[in-house]
Each structure stands twice: as structure tokens, then as C-alpha cells.
Design a protein around this nucleic acid. Structure first.
Length: 507
RNA sequence: GCCGCAUUCGUCUAGAGGCCCAGGACACCGCCCUCUCAAGGCGGAGAUCACCGGUUCGAAUCCGGUAUGCGGUACCA
């Protein structure tokens, strides 16, 4: 399949959307698979809703996923590629020129109807339970009529004449599709009265100019495809192939929306979903390899991608599954990479006062084996090991006492632990060295290891769940372990005496 | 209203006439491992393949229709 050229053409009317990422991804994978080019184009003709910060969000989000575009806008404002510019607002002369050609060929005509008139017409049709459709009033205007309107100073939009015929195409996902042009709603506007072009027009002019071979986009455009085909033909251009992707759905099976789901890629990024997981999960939403492979990198996906296995029905976005894929990828990260990616989240925790100091890279590297498999998201790191980097921990006396024990036993146990642990110096402060003496203590008293360990865990972490206890003690260090044990002992003793003392531990 | 598209376990999917009284994964439940939480291992439950007809020796797979859902129907994209 020579000369495959595909594009992702988002509108900067909002932040980069999960659905957009998936559309971009399928285009990207298709291009890579077929040795083609992946082009990015910004469709910013809706001046009122387009915002520079949204364009920035789209560019940076896309870059984050690892999808690189061969042609398109640069973040700075420039362009890369021979078919630029790649921002539609900078291509207005082309749309004007294309419209002029259509006008000259009488394939399009000026329409002087006012929005109010069109609105009234539409309401009348709806009231009569008819399909809304442009009456074609201005289609039959004589040159003299047009001149008269122009003298009145009435601004004119430009309408494209819709031929009376059936438009057919073979969608790469859905197969043969036929739509009678009579159901398109009549002649449609391609240029507003103020001269700015409309989506259906720009998309065709640009796809033609940029020699796009395959238009891969969301299913919401399927019904509009005949308009595009008619335009390609009227402009004298080769019609590209089309592939309409199934929609990504909210849990209630409506089109995924900000209203009912978290749709912004940036929101997932800041929760600590990693790029590999996002790409992996989205690629398998509406497409499958046809095998039972599940965890695949961007390159592996590209080598397997094809449009044949694209699902036709919409797919519900399942966050639980995304988290599972995310966990798979977090575990696969090389340690240094893991530490580097964790850093921004810890910096944020520090800024928000959730921790009192930042761990060093060395500390994180040694913690990696016990936390890498416990993180569903990088952003959860504070919940997991935040207690290591706070000055003090507040162990709740109530939680300190294991279910099978009473306060007296717990107090006695913690004192015994403090004594046993204090016998270690910095040199023997290793998990392998710390565990045996405590096991002996358990055996001597006829306790259950789980009970003792839980009491210690709560004393030194303030939590009932944490990484394995002895790794935790090693990470904590001798001094802080002893201090926190002391604090817990004091808190428990105070409570036994019935005094209302705040349980405060010291780091 | 009109037009279009879709419909396999709760969810993502495998399946392209016999390999399927439907396989995998997530989630769920149980067991194992185990100092908690995870991870991992093993097992379980979960789909009359939307429904009704037809074609065929044989249909989840082909053909009609019905239902339901979704999308489109703008001087939005």
C-alpha cells in the first residue's frame, strides 16, 4: 500500500480528549504499519471556541504518548512538513480559492438567506414533522436577483449544490455504505457570510491538499461522509479511503463525554497513568490483535495493527481495566525509569504538604522492589510510602491494638520490640537481621506473628497497610524506628491511664 | 421525524458454516502463598451469541424482518 498518508485533525476547542487520543493512535499505528506518514492538523476555524492553551494541551499530550507526527505544527507556532501550514486559520486563502472555483463552475452559489429566515424555515418543518432541509430558495436566483441583494448590502454565505444521487463508498471498517444525497438536508453552507469556512469544507480541501490517502476518524462522521465525497468530486480530487472507528462510550453507553466521564488525557497523566498503559489500553479499545496478547508496547502494536480487526460497535471506557494495564506497565519499568517518573508526583506531594521532604534517588531505588508492584498509579505513591518522608506519624491507639489483643498486651509487646530492636546497631539494621529476634519473641510469648507485626506496623507507619514490615523498618532507619515505637508506647500508656492525650508520634 | 450505523459473559474482546452446549482478559468469589496491602499461582461463577423467521445435513458466523441503542441531521467540529 504505497503512499499512505493519514492525519489526526483535532479542534482546539477543548483539552485533548481520550477519544481523540484513540483516533490519533489508530491513525499513527496505521501509518507505521504501512510505512506511511502521520500528519497532525489543527482545525481551528471555530474562532470563538478555539483557544491557544487547548492547542498546547493537544500538542503536549500527543507528544507525551510517544506518537510522533511526521508533518504538522510545532509547539512553538511553526510548522514541519511540505504541505503546510497545518493550522486551518492560516489556510483561509485556500478555502476562499476553492470556493471561488466551485462558484465559477456553478457547483456552489451565494445564499442571501438570513439566519432568522433559516431558523423560521427549520422550525416550520419540524412543526410539520418533516426532515429539516434547506429549501433551495437562493439556488435559483438570477444574476439580476443577486445583484439586487448585493446592492441592499445583504451578506452572502456560499452554499454547495448537492446532486440528486446516491453516494456509495466502501468503508474500511463497516464495508459498503450507501446514502441517498436527498437525505443530506439540501444544499449546505461551505463559507459563512463573514467568509470563514465550515468544517465539511475545510476538511475536504485540506485532505485533498495534503494528499491524505486514508481518512480514519470517529463514527460520528459516518453520516457526513457523502458530503465530503461530493465535495472531493466537485473539486476534481481523488476521493480517499474512509475508515470510521467505533465510539468510546460512557458507562451508560452514550458517546463518552466530559459530563459523565473523565475525558481529558491530562487528567489521567496527572493521576499517574503511564504513557505505555494509556496507549496499550486505548489501542485495545475497539481493536484487537486477534490473539490473546494483552500487554503490548507502541512498537509492538504498530507491527500488528490492521483495520480488519477493528470492532464495529461502540466500546465502554473501563477505568478498572486501564488501572490493571497501568499496573502491568509500572511493574515493567526499569528501576531508573521508574524513579524518574515517580519524581514529579513526589514533588507535588511535597508542595501540597503531604510529605515533609523529598526522598533521594537512592532511597527510591532501594524502595522500588517493594513499591513497584503495589502501585496502581504513580500518583498513589504518597499513600504507599508517604509515612517515610513525614516528620511525625500519628498512630491511632485504637488501631495500635490488634483484634486478638488488649491494650496491656500491646503495650508489653511494643516494649519488648523496642528492647529487641534497640540491640541492633546501624550495621545489623537489615531486614534479615531484624526479623529473627522478633520471631523469637513471638514464639516465646505464644503470640501470633501477624498480631505483633501489625502493632509494629501501625506504630511506625500510622497505617494498617504498608510495604512489608522489615523493608519498611530498614527504609525508616534505626533512629526513627525507635522514636516512633517510643511515641506509640507513650500514646498507648497515656490512653490506659484514661487521659485525653493526643496521640502524636515523633519522627 | 428522517437518514445511517451497531448489537457475543457486568466490561473489553476471540470467533470469518462444523474445532464453540462459545475461548481469553478486567472486575467479582474461593483457595494457595503470606507480617498487612499488593503481586503471583490455582479454581469458580458469569453469554439461551438482542429477538423472530429463512438458507443449509449443520449458523454466533449467510439472508430478511423486528426490537433496542447510538450517531448524524447547524452560517459547531
Amino acid at each position: 500500500m504505497p503512499d499512505v498518508r493519514v492525519r489526526f485533525a483535532p479542534s482546539p476547542t477543548g483539552p485533548l480528549h481520550i477519544g481523540g487520543v484513540r483516533t490519533a493512535l489508530f491513525n499513527y499505528l496505521y501509518a507505521r504499519r504501512h510505512g506511511g506518514r502521520f500528519i497532525l492538523r489543527i482545525e481551528d476555524t471555530d474562532v470563538a471556541r478555539s483557544m491557544p492553551e487547548h492547542e498546547q494541551d493537544i500538542l503536549s499530550g500527543l507528544a507525551w504518548t510517544g506518537m510522533t507526527w511526521d508533518e504538522g505544527p510545532e509547539p512553538g507556532g511553526g510548522d514541519r512538513g511540505p504541505f503546510g501550514p497545518y493550522r486551518q486559520m492560516q489556510r483561509r486563502d485556500r478555502y476562499r480559492a476553492a470556493a471561488d472555483r466551485l462558484l465559477a463552475a456553478d457547483a456552489a452559489y451565494p445564499c442571501f438567506c438570513t439566519p432568522e429566515e433559516l431558523d423560521a424555515e427549520r422550525r416550520r418543518q419540524e412543526a410539520a414533522r418533516q426532515a429539516p432541509r434547506y429549501s433551495g430558495r437562493c439556488a435559483r436566483l438570477t444574476p439580476a436577483d443577486r445583484l439586487a441583494f448585493e446592492r441592499e448590502g445583504r451578506p452572502a454565505a456560499v452554499r454547495f449544490r448537492v446532486a440528486e444521487r446516491v453516494v456509495a463508498f466502501d468503508d474500511l471498517v463497516r464495508g459498503h455504505v450507501e446514502i441517498d444525497a436527498a437525505n443530506l438536508g439540501g444544499d449546505f453552507v461551505i463559507l459563512r457570510a463573514d467568509g470563514t469556512p465550515l468544517y465539511h469544507f475545510t476538511v475536504v480541501v485540506d485532505d485533498a491538499d495534503m494528499a491524505i490517502s486514508d481518512v480514519i476518524r470517529g463514527e460520528e462522521h459516518l453520516s457526513n461522509t457523502p458530503k465530503h465525497i461530493l465535495l472531493f468530486e466537485a473539486l476534481g480530487h481523488h476521493v480517499p479511503r474512509f475508515a470510521h472507528l467505533p465510539l468510546i462510550l460512557n458507562a451508560d453507553r452514550t458517546k463518552m463525554s466530559k459530563r459523565r466521564s473523565q475525558t481529558a488525557l491530562s487528567a489521567y497523566m496527572s493521576e499517574g497513568f503511564v504513557r505505555e498503559a494509556m496507549v496499550n489500553y486505548l489501542a485495545l479499545l475497539g481493536w484487537s490483535t486477534g490473539t490473546e496478547e494483552e500487554i503490548l508496547s507502541l512498537d509492538e502494536l504498530a507491527s500488528r495493527f490492521d483495520l480488519d480487526h477493528v470492532q464495529k460497535g461502540g466500546a465502554v471506557f473501563d477505568r478498572e481495566r486501564l488501572e490493571w494495564v497501568n499496573g502491568q506497565w509500572i511493574r515493567r519499568l526499569p528501576v531508573d525509569e521508574f524513579v524518574e517518573r515517580l519524581r514529579p508526583f513526589l514533588v507535588r506531594d511535597r508542595e501540597q504538604g503531604r510529605i515533609d521532604r523529598l526522598p533521594t534517588d537512592d532511597e527510591l531505588r532501594s524502595l522500588a522492589p517493594v513499591i513497584q508492584e503495589r502501585l496502581p498509579r504513580l500518583g498513589a505513591v504518597g499513600d504507599l510510602i508517604g509515612f517515610l518522608f513525614v516528620d511525625r506519624v500519628a498512630a491511632d491507639p485504637a488501631q495500635l491494638v490488634p483484634k486478638r489483643w488488649d491494650a496491656a498486651t500491646t503495650l508489653e509487646a511494643l516494649c519488648g520490640v523496642r528492647e529487641a530492636v534497640a540491640r541492633h546497631d546501624e550495621v545489623t539494621w537489615e531486614a534479615d537481621e531484624l526479623e529473627p529476634p522478633l520471631r523469637e519473641l513471638v514464639a516465646a510469648r505464644g503470640w501470633k506473628a501477624g498480631d505483633l507485626f501489625m502493632a509494629i506496623r501501625v506504630a511506625v507507619t500510622g497505617q494498617t497497610s504498608a510495604p512489608p514490615l522489615f523493608d519498611t523498618l530498614v527504609a525508616l532507619g534505626r533512629a526513627r524506628t525507635l522514636a516512633r515505637l517510643d511515641a506509640a508506647i507513650v500514646a498507648l500508656a497515656d490512653r490506659r491511664e484514661g487521659e485525653a492525650v493526643e496521640p502524636v508520634g515523633h519522627g
